[in-house]
Design a protein around this nucleic acid. Sequence first.
DNA 1: GTCTATATGACGATAGAC
DNA 2: GTCTATCGTCATATAGAC
Lengths: 215, 215
Amino acid sequence: MAAAEGVGRRQRRRQETIDEVLAVAAEVMAEAGAGGLALGEIARRMGIQPPSLYVYFDSKNAIYDAVFARGWQTLLDSMAPLGRRLDDTDDARALMLLISQHFVKWAVENQAYAQLMFWRPVPGFEPSEAAFAPAVEMSRRTTQLFAELQRRGVLRADADIAEATTAWTALISGVISQHLANEPTETFDDGRFTRLLPVLSSMFLTHYGPEREIR
Amino acid sequence: MAAAEGVGRRQRRRQETIDEVLAVAAEVMAEAGAGGLALGEIARRMGIQPPSLYVYFDSKNAIYDAVFARGWQTLLDSMAPLGRRLDDTDDARALMLLISQHFVKWAVENQAYAQLMFWRPVPGFEPSEAAFAPAVEMSRRTTQLFAELQRRGVLRADADIAEATTAWTALISGVISQHLANEPTETFDDGRFTRLLPVLSSMFLTHYGPEREIR
DNA sequence: GTCTATATGACGATAGAC
DNA sequence: GTCTATCGTCATATAGAC
């Protein structure tokens, strides 16, 4: 019993340290860019020596991996409430735009994560399969959302859902990429690319929608 | 006279060395990723010592800057013939797709350059104004192309050309980003995102085109 | 002008004492 | 679990040979 409790405490404390490492890492990445993460800087801010980090992570890339996974998981969690709104709303097209804007806004306001999630800024780092899981789940839910939109007649009955999902992904990631690369200090509301989302969303829904309006 | 010739030879030789450095740098970046460029590796392949590189470039970032400029200039030059075809063709919509495909294909086949041109993979490196010039010129020509398409009635008379240019840029860079990040080893023809270009192009032209077809 | 030789300080990573 | 010591590599700077 006492032994089991001891293990529990130790593990709890270990997890807390791991969480702190990741939080500080995200801080450093936000200031220096995703590729500018330095173990010495993490250690300095935590008041420990760099080698101590190796007690919790096997390598620098393992830290990147954990940050990558955490980013997708956080974004995924933040989108869940919006997805559930689909049951209430009668304007699925407007909700679609809201979802797109929420997604891009998160990326613009969490650029350290977004660089790692949407680009390959770190030579030699490739996310592990486990870290990729939340990203795959995001893709799954997006496909599911489009299938539901099709069921409701917002998307054409003969629309290729897999294709629509890929197209939407490319659209959104294009806006994010251009913002991060060309005007990273601009706010979501004022960005040249982020402001295009209503147009792009309407473009997308016109193409995959049930009928094309006559102007 | 002899002195002037001597200077000419020296400068020519200097320029040749500079060109060799940039070619080797692009090689290394293609293998290790844009952020994985190492001066020692450039020097090793050239058969010189790393400090010798400082005779030709002030810093590593100066090499990145030159590669960045060269990438945009090369892409720009490779697109010029396609742009001129606008005068001959009677199917401007098809040419529009060809141009998009050419652009993306170049990025997919020159990933070392593309990473530097479309992302920010190197902490602390921001392209100089001079290096940015060919990229600005590319944007200018794109705007010009769309204005011409509008003159010909391929784009709506009341379409916002600046907005259309930004939207097209976001679309294209979305395809490139997703390909580079998720399936960089896939060919242009087989890529999940690159294959979407006809759909995306049609989506774009439907939105900005003169009338929306009824399905 | 161009190169080599050498030095500096930061980095990621490892070994081993405590 | 944390430290010190250390290694190899990196970008960069300087001194000096040719």
